[in-house]
Amino acid sequence: MQLVKDKEIVNDTWRYVPEDADLGEGDITVSLARWKSDQQSLLNHKGKVGLRLLPSDGVDSIVDDLDNIQLIELEFPDFADGRLFSHAWLLRSRYNYHKEIRAIGHYIPDQVFYLSRVGVNAFLPAKSSDLPFVLANLNDFTVKYQNSVN
């Protein structure tokens, strides 16, 4: 699988580990529930560990863990759920999270300009044929009216 990261198409090296599956090896992401319940084995995991957040997951609850989280995936169950835009903003602006924030799930390429402005720097589109649209739409606007992350 490929994704757009920092405006370039790159290969995805991460794997999501479902709720009760073995962690396995390599770079993995887990749900917030798993992160909270299985933290010790995750901290011992060989390979990087990331977190997959849903709109209903409060960002406040992971503030103290951010140093140990190498990637945050924001998963859109529905493109119209705008909470993840605030999550990204909070992670970057308030909690100074500097690693990769990635949009995944059911957002649309037309939203990537806004997402990049609130601090999302990587985009895994629902279908790989959307990759060129994601790249193009990151440049939808050359001007802006308000402060945000970017």
């Binding site: 493109f79 705008g82 806004y114 402005r117 609130v118 009216y145 308000q146």
Partner: peptide, 8 residues
């Protein structure tokens, strides 16, 4: 206008 965080 085009507020990136509050359009959805």
């Amino acid at each position: 206008t085009l507020h990136p965080e509050f359009d959805y």
